[in-house]
Design a protein around this nucleic acid. Structure first.
Length: 440
RNA sequence: CGGGGCGUAGCGCAGCCUGGUAGCGCAUCUGGUUUGGGACCAGAGGGUCGUAGGUUCAAAUCCUACCGCCCCGACCA
């Protein structure tokens, strides 16, 4: 894309309403535009990043055998009355009436809906396990939305649901998602730590939150430094391998606020390893057995006997991850954002010094730009006549991982190429393509 | 929902106390000179001052109500 044509309404000043760096940066880069409290439009730059995150989440769900579906945003109150949550969920649920005066709601989560779909379709234990997920907008009517897309009312989320015949099988499904989440966050270059967590209104007795450490996070956490060294690279979705992975993590005390116990913490974690800090919740997995299947009568035939299925649910905040990655990768002091290559809005930027009276640099830049494009490298070329220093500051803020600078002294054969925030090297265009492709 | 604050150009703000018909910086447009970490000169465009009502010869400014947004707290996959 040419910078002169692309819709990136960039600002020089921070809007006053933004208090944390991800919110500030997203507004300055024109990634999002607030529509009302806690509700945002996604503009091209932000949308591109979110879609890349979504693709990674999807690939890692498919990789453990989960199947993608799409459920509606608007749900009927009927099924929520069946599960008992129509009353329990409270003011956070946005309730709507349609023209026939039927009670509807904008879904904050989908346990009831998926259970309804399941019970109508699956009748035999032989069809189990079933792992289903969708990626859809959710609405929770937060009392006080804040921090931009980090704590908003409308948000984009991947939620998955598992159905099994026994507790043992259900635990296997749970562990598959556990692994899937470790892989997902790793691909975004985030270290997300699993923490034993409270189950809240979802219910159940087994739950983990996946947390990224950040001062601006809203979750208080207590963990053991050594948990960062747990290696799950060789874990497969086989039962033994997954059990080992869970054991490796469970050796270390790692909990959120609600589960915290000072005595156990001090007992299990030597002082030098203790971490008490704040973090951002980017994923949450739950096992809740028959909490929904029983009241909603979701059962299968098992050796001539009716068995309620054992369920779990698994969420990833796709839109929240955009903010979480910024919190982790943005150096606010130096105004340099470093998108992980896997989610960066573009692969490479071309930053030329241009002069209206001398088109040679523009021609050279266009040549490079077209060459990169033909090699399937998503490139943005700044074809404006801003000063070169203004362009460099601007592109540091935008955060595309690779930059090609075309200055006054640039020659025809080699180009100034750099990884954002690092020192430049003079390289041939073929070498540049190779480096970018190897880092994708 | 309790407490506090704010709504004036795309963004950041001044003007309001003491009423007289709207201003600054950045951004935008035109022309020119520039160019290695957010350049300079000259010119230009852009606002029913959140909305409604009231007081007044006259309201961004005073009064009333409403709406919206932000912050702290409580709450929260």
């Amino acid at each position: 894309m040419l910078f002169s044509k692309v819709f990136i309404p960039i600002l020089k000043n921070d809007p006053t309403e933004a208090k944390i760096k991800s919110h500030k940066l997203m507004l300055r880069l024109g990634m999002i535009k607030q529509s009302s409290a806690g509700i945002y439009s996604w503009l091209p730059l932000g949308f591109k990043v979110m879609k890349k995150i979504e693709d990674i989440v999807r690939e890692e769900q498919n990789r453990i055998g989960a199947q993608e579906i799409l459920m509606p945003t608007i749900q009927s109150s009927e099924i929520w009355k069946e599960s008992g949550r129509y009353e329990d969920y409270g003011e956070e649920m946005l309730r709507i009436k349609d023209r026939q005066n039927r009670e509807m709601l904008y879904g904050p989560t989908n346990e009831e809906l998926i259970t309804d779909i399941f019970r109508n379709s699956i009748k035999s234990y032989k069809s189990l396990p079933q792992l289903l997920y969708h990626i859809q907008w959710k609405f929770r009517d937060e009392l006080r939305p804040r921090f931009g897309i980090m704590r908003c009312r409308e948000f984009y989320m991947k939620d998955a649901y598992s159905f099994d015949i026994s507790d043992d099988d259900a635990l296997l499904s749970y562990n598959k998602f556990f692994l899937s989440y470790l892989r997902t966050f790793k691909r975004m270059e985030l270290s997300a730590i699993p923490m034993a967590a409270d189950t809240g209104p979802i219910g159940g007795n087994l739950s983990h939150e996946f947390i990224i450490l950040a001062d601006t996070g809203e979750s208080k956490i207590y963990t053991d430094k050594r948990i960062f060294d747990v290696d799950s690279n060789l874990t497969t979705i086989e039962k033994n391998s997954l059990d080992k992975m869970r054991n490796d993590f469970e050796k270390f005390y790692s909990v959120t606020d609600e589960k915290f116990d000072q005595k156990i913490f001090e007992n299990k974690v030597p002082e030098k390893y203790r971490i008490k800090t704040k973090g951002i919740e980017v994923g949450h997995i739950f096992y809740f057995g028959d909490k929904y299947s029983k009241p909603m009568n979701a059962s299968v035939d098992f050796n001539g006997k009716k068995e309620f299925v054992k369920m779990g649910s698994y969420g990833v905040g796709v839109s929240r991850l955009v903010g979480a990655i910024i919190e982790a990768k943005y150096d606010e002091k130096n105004e340099i954002m470093k998108w992980p290559t896997s989610v960066s809005p573009y692969d490479c930027s071309v930053i030329p010094l241009l002069n209206k009276n001398d088109k040679s640099n523009l021609e050279k830049s266009m040549k490079i730009y077209n060459f990169l494009k033909n090699n399937k490298i998503d490139t943005i070329l700044d074809d404006t006549y801003e000063s070169i220093s203004a362009k460099m500051k601007k592109f540091n803020l935008i955060g595309i991982p690779f930059q090609i600078i075309i200055g006054k002294k640039s020659d025809e054969e080699t180009f100034e190429f750099k990884k954002i925030g690092e020192e430049p090297k003079k390289l041939k265009i073929e070498e540049i393509v190779k480096i970018i492709k190897n880092n994708k």
